[in-house]
Design a protein around this nucleic acid. Sequence first.
DNA 1: ACCTGAACACCGTTCAAGT
DNA 2: ACCTGAACACCGTTCAAGT
Lengths: 240, 240
Amino acid sequence: MSESEGPARRVGRPRTAVLSHERILEAAFELADANGPEFSLASLARRLGVQPSALHHYFPTKAALIAAMRGQITLRLGTHGFDEQPWHEAILPWARASIEAFGRHPGLIAALATLPIDGEPESIADYERIVAAFERDGYPSDLIVPALVALESFIIGSALDGLTPPDNLRPVHEPERAPALLRTEAAARAAASAAGITPAQRTFEFGLRALVAGLRAIGETGGVPGGADPASASSREISG
Amino acid sequence: MSESEGPARRVGRPRTAVLSHERILEAAFELADANGPEFSLASLARRLGVQPSALHHYFPTKAALIAAMRGQITLRLGTHGFDEQPWHEAILPWARASIEAFGRHPGLIAALATLPIDGEPESIADYERIVAAFERDGYPSDLIVPALVALESFIIGSALDGLTPPDNLRPVHEPERAPALLRTEAAARAAASAAGITPAQRTFEFGLRALVAGLRAIGETGGVPGGADPASASSREISG
DNA sequence: ACCTGAACACCGTTCAAGT
DNA sequence: ACCTGAACACCGTTCAAGT
């Protein structure tokens, strides 16, 4: 609603530009913060008091705008001490900051998740910092990028999970057909409530620690428990 | 293209019904298999040789149709031996079948990811079977649902990752600014190639094993390495 | 009950025209 | 260069009308 009651502009180039990359990005974040999972150029144009077609002068497509938004989000993530701390410690606040950033923009999560990185400078710089920490700590070279991508996949999936209703897995319709689910869902909810956080937050923290612990264990032994190399083992089981 | 060249139907109720829930679902899966990440009721109606509005007679909304599709997918997942094997073994083929099913329907992944379960019978039955195996194996009650949701988040996130181009993280534009990423991405790609699988498949298998190993370790000790309880620890760190 | 066809309120994107 | 306004090709959904 920031500019919607402006005087109707005439056709032709305005004497001073009404739009800019910065103004558009600012309004885009306001829109993504305020609304639910709907994020359209049309609503963004309304908020800015311009016609939708004016936006294409600054961002050629909607995907380009969303890519720029992800660049901003990545910039704000910060460095989180990957230079001073081991990867498995610095990665925890980085992961928490990431899902918090996604959670602040529910209308963007699905779009961000499906958008390729495609050489985006901010994301590349972020990844480079993290990958360098893995290398410095002696993590196996061919497992560093998989470890990072697995973490990102977990974070994106958890962000999407955070969009679902809190009692999503509660068997409300036929509880007698899912007694174990009923019991354990209630136990998890009670534990989250006692800790003063939402079930989704508790699940994320638990899963994050589990994943990091597992990545450490496999990275240090050079393979999965049992001695098999993960790559060759996966090739056997996936192709079989 | 199955029915697009039918004779134009007249208005009014046809003598025998042209649509049914089964026919719609079948065509919907064909559409989701064939196309990329676009899945619309309009294109589905075209494929079925009907007007889009006819579909609402069987599924009130697009979300209802997608929910029914997820039910079908879950049914086809099968049981995967949760009754005979420990959870941490049965969960592996279950997770692989899940991501394979998602991968077969790229146009659905984002929609499925954001759709609440909302008491869907097939999903509830699937979860009940898995949760019961966790309970039987002595996993802490309040961590069972979080463990399952964390696994699902990883699977969904990995499915979305599978939609991105294979060289997504490759720093093509300014490789000199991301030497570690360039090195490790190449190493991961070479390892996947040597194993005869895609980088995304190798990442999934690696992350899956790491996550399951971590979930086992935390579940058996009753807390994260270091002795802190995950719930209270997360409450400290999230609220702080 | 089951479909067509028109209508409504949206989308993203392109492009000529105006200043 | 920077915007409007019209146009295009889409969406999902509702609803009257026809059989």
